[in-house]
Design a protein around this nucleic acid. Structure first.
Lengths: 200, 200
DNA sequence: CATGCTTGTAACTGTTCAGTTAGATACAGC
DNA sequence: GCTGTATCTAACTGAACAGTTACAAGCATG
């Protein structure tokens, strides 16, 4: 019993433990991707026992799905697109990605891992494309490029700097991620999207 | 000896075997990423013995470096940028990525991987940025967006459709990767880059 | 204060993996 | 043909990994 007394079991709180595990998993998957992520490391990050991970989430795949779903919803909510305003959408998405590096990296990983998209995610994209189409019909933005293509361009442009190849960032002078440089790029993004979407 | 006769050892050709292994490794890393790639599967793909992989390339990390370096050089060569012509660059890069899915996936991987970029790669990016700056000074393209930012936008736009989130491609109607749709997007890319780079 | 369900832990298991060992076969120079 | 070196192979090894087992302790309800 001398040993047992030395242990310090964590206070019992299922919801809090589950949230800690999800948070730890988010960081782990963002850092290493799905294949590179380690279950033991996630449990350690969360300060929880590995077993609980299986109790709460099933297996590694389901845990990854849970992380992806939460992050996807957060990004979609953070960057809405009212009235097909691609410029506002781009800036909102850029700001969110700037504030949430894990979300940025998970988005990149997900593009790579090619998992089947959920109906909800597909629906969210469809709604955005339709909003762009509506703006086209209203004559607010150019019509010579299909709405889906226009949206795809803008989507990628929001990540152009923050997820640029390291070699590209290193090629320029100065610190590419200083607050000042980031603000400069943010202004560039706004100007670029404006030029891209306006009637030619 | 009865068994030995049944085996069919491959003809001896070090250079050919090495090339086969590199090709197989490229496909494997493109498909699964670094952590997901399997050494045994690479050897099997190449129809060569695993041991040779260690003889020719060292270990998994060095093999990955060899693949990345080869692919990086190929992409840089396929999409040059003469006179800071971003439009021609974008189309050339798009066409190359269209014809080389492995290169596309490896580029996506490299974009967010944290490894230190090589001097050669950094130099290649620097040369491209300088070409854009030169075009700016010559008054051929807009100057209100820094050359590096402009280049980063165009770089990403070349991958917007081919590496779009699956949910986005699935949201549109029809087959997003049919030859006809691809050509439509190619034209959209050309128009988009033109609008983006011209003097506002 | 007993019973049963929830939350937690440590130690274990079977498998898969990168990397190694020991040795066989082709081929070039003598 | 004999010998040494380069090329190739199958079988092995130790570590790492996802997932499991067996059990302990808290906590609510009678």
């Amino acid at each position: 019993m001398s040993e047992a007394a030395a242990r310090k079991p964590r206070p019992r709180n299922a919801a809090a433990t589950k949230a800690l595990l999800l948070e730890a998993a988010t960081a782990e998957f963002a850092e290493y991707g799905f294949a590179g992520a380690r279950i033991d490391r996630i449990a350690e990050r969360a300060g929880a026992n590995k077993r609980l991970l299986y109790v709460y989430f099933g297996d590694k795949n389901q845990l990854f799905d849970a992380v992806v779903q939460e992050q996807t919803e957060a990004v979609l909510e953070a960057a809405p697109m009212d009235e097909g305003d691609l410029r506002a959408f781009a800036i909102a998405r850029f700001d969110y990605m700037l504030a949430n590096p894990d979300a940025r990296r998970l988005a990149a990983w997900r593009a790579f891992e090619q998992t089947k998209p959920s109906d909800a995610e597909r629906g969210a994209f469809r709604a955005r494309i339709e909003a762009v189409e509506k703006a086209q019909r209203a004559g607010r933005i150019r019509t010579d490029i299909p709405a889906a293509d226009l949206f795809a361009f803008v989507l990628r442009m929001t990540e152009s700097w923050l997820s640029a190849p390291p070699a590209l960032l290193a090629a320029g002078g100065g610190d590419p991620l200083s607050a000042k440089r980031i603000q400069q790029h943010r202004a560039a993004l706004e100007a670029a999207v404006r030029s891209l979407v306006e009637q030619p």
